[in-house]
Every structure is written in C-alpha cells, then in structure tokens.
C-alpha cells in the first residue's frame, strides 16, 4: 500500500500544525516521523488515519482519495500513544473488537474470530494474558496488545503514535528490536511518530524530520545523520557543537580568527558552524584552527567527554577517543573533521 500526501495544511486557530506537507510513502516501508513536540507529526499521522481532517491538501492510498472515507473504512491500524485499550474488556475481547464490530455480512463466525485472536496473541507472544484486563498489564504488554488489536482488522497501513513514549528505557530498547522484526514478518506499510532521534534512526527504513508543520528532510537514517539538509536537522539529530561564524571570500572566521576549513559554498555573512561532538579532532595546542582550555573531563565507555572553553569565550563539549587522556587545565588544539555551515 502506498500513501501519498500532497500540500497538507491543518490549522488549530492561528497555529498551523501542518503547513504544506508533501510526502510519498512506498509499499512496505517502515517510516519514522521525527520532530520536537508541536512539529505536526502526530497531526499528520491522525489525518492519515482519518481521526482528523486537513483544511487543505490531499491524502491518497494507492492513488485513491482517502479523504472521502471515514476512519473506520480506511483499514488503518492505529496504535495510540497511551494505547487506549478498552478498560472494561479483557485482552482477548480487546483484540477481538475489530472483528466483532464488522458488518454482519462480512463478520466471521465466533470460532474463526477466536482462532484469529489466538493467532494475533501468539504473534505478540502474549497469549497467556488473554483473560486479563488492561489495568493488570505492564506498559510493554499493553503496547503489544494495542498492536495486536490494531492488526486484527488486517490493516493495509499501520500507524503508531509515540509507540515507545510511555515505556522505561530497557523495555523501550527491547520493543524497538521487536517492532522491526515484526514489521519484517508482516510487511505492512508502517509509519510511527517519535521525538526520539535514536529511536527513529534505529528502527525506521526512512526518516522524515519535521519542524513547525513542515518537512525539513526526508532520507535514510544514514542520510539525515551524515548529510543534514538544514541547521534544524543538524541540531536535532545527534549532538552538535554550534559556533557563530562569519563567512567572507570563501573563508570562515570565528570572531577575528580565521579557521583553516573551507566555506564549501556557504554564502557570505553571519553563519553557524555545526560540528558533531566526535567530529572535533583534538591535538596538542596549536595543532588546529582553534585553541581551547579543558575545563572538565568525564570518561565513560570508549570516549571521554571534555568541556572546553575556546579562546573567544565559547564553551563547547567534545567527545574524544581515549587514546590520549585529557587533563583539566590542559590547552588543546581543535580542528573540525566534518562540519556543515548554515546561514544564521
């Protein structure tokens, strides 16, 4: 099932939740909508599901206008952020719900419904919880039941709103892996919303980065991480050092100090230099474009994180390998290995 979204606009009062969004999603993709809160990602998901209607724009499934259909007719499985399990029904009845409310003409008999629910509970590995009520389940179990319930109607699209948002860190990691393998198994076009960049990069085949109701970049996880299209994407994905610089005649200046790096086509004027923490090469004093004094060092795992004060007064954090232990008070030379310059 392919999904196409064209020029979607949705306003809540004066606030534009979606401000002209275009997006094409291929069959069987596992797509992440990534952005800070208020970026419009959940609104986009709800419009695709039919739980909200856009003010302008088109949504089509396999080239067919989806906006003429109500949520119940779109065959979309929706997993809510807080799961929205029916609290007065057992796990079994929750999963069976979508099958039981089908029109009489296509509704399956009770035995087939039971068999199908059993199959789904097996798929999410929770068949032993069939008789429990949602309030008796842990967060991770509720999450998987919500997914089984959404899958019961054999959805053509699976939509997940912050699927791991309400879970603790460990369960979250397990479920990420599980969701990815589940997607491989059932291969339904799936979109999930998240504000957690690590989650998006780890789970999705393709990531859509959104901000203020607009799409900033669409690409593979590697793409958006290595080649951020905008300053926002660079700042949002991965931890970045941001330095105010000035570009003129193809040279980059920080304060009155000219850096050795090339402007790489950045237009002249006040700009921002973005460098990933681990892309700042650390050497002896005077070895790089910048000098700075180490204020503080913390070592954990394979890296040491140092707080460095540059001579211009800017304070940055860098991640260096532990081949040479840094000392507080030491003067070091810094050189951006990989960087991007965006107009300020």
């Amino acid at each position: 099932m392919t999904i196409e979204v064209k020029n979607l606009v949705k306003k809540f009062g004066a606030f534009a939740a979606l401000d002209g969004v275009d997006l094409k999603i291929g069959n069987g993709e596992l797509l992440a909508l990534l952005g800070p809160s208020g970026s419009g990602k959940t609104t986009l998901l709800r419009i695709i599901a039919g739980l909200d209607w856009p003010d302008l724009g088109e949504v089509s499934f396999d080239g067919e206008n989806a906006l003429v259909r109500g949520a119940g007719e779109r065959q979309v499985g929706f997993v809510f952020q807080h799961y929205a399990l029916f609290r007065h029904m057992t796990v079994f009845e929750n999963v069976a719900f979508g099958l039981r409310v089908q029109p009489r003409s296509i509704r399956k008999d009770d035995a087939s419904i039971r068999a199908r629910v059993k199959e789904l509970l097996d798929l999410v590995q929770l068949d032993w919880l069939a008789g429990r009520y949602p309030s008796q389940l842990s967060g991770g179990q509720r999450q998987r039941i919500a997914l089984a319930r959404a899958l019961a109607i054999a959805p053509r699209i699976l939509l997940l709103d912050e699927p791991f948002g309400a879970l603790d860190a460990k369960v979250r990691k397990e479920l990420r892996q599980w969701l990815r393998s589940l997607h491989q198994e059932i291969n339904v076009t799936s979109i999930f919303v998240t504000h957690d960049q690590e989650e998006a990069l780890e789970v999705a085949n393709r990531v859509v980065v959104m901000d203020k109701g607009r799409i900033e970049q669409i690409g593979t996880p590697g793409d958006v991480y290595d080649n951020p299209a905008t300053a926002f994407v660079h700042g949002f994905i991965g931890e970045s050092i941001v330095l105010p610089v000035n570009v003129s005649d193809g040279r980059v200046r920080l304060g009155d100090k000219a850096l050795k790096i090339a402007a790489e086509g950045a237009s002249s004027g006040a700009s921002k230099l973005f460098v990933r923490r681990h892309d700042m090469q650390v050497g002896p004093a005077g070895s790089g474009s910048l000098d700075g004094s180490v204020r503080q060092v913390r070592s954990f795992g394979p890296i040491q994180r140092a707080v460095v004060a540059l001579c211009g007064g800017e304070i940055i954090e860098i991640d260096a390998p532990r081949d040479r232990e840094l000392q507080a008070g030491e003067i070091v030379g810094l050189e951006p290995r990989r960087y991007r310059i965006f107009a300020a």
Partner: peptide
Amino acid sequence: TQEEEAAISLGAS
C-alpha cells in the same frame, strides 16, 4: 476520547 477513537478506527459505527 482515545478509546472512542480506537473503536472508530477499528471499524465500529
């Protein structure tokens, strides 16, 4: 309204 939305999206009238 989440439970109602869930029911609607599962095809309930």
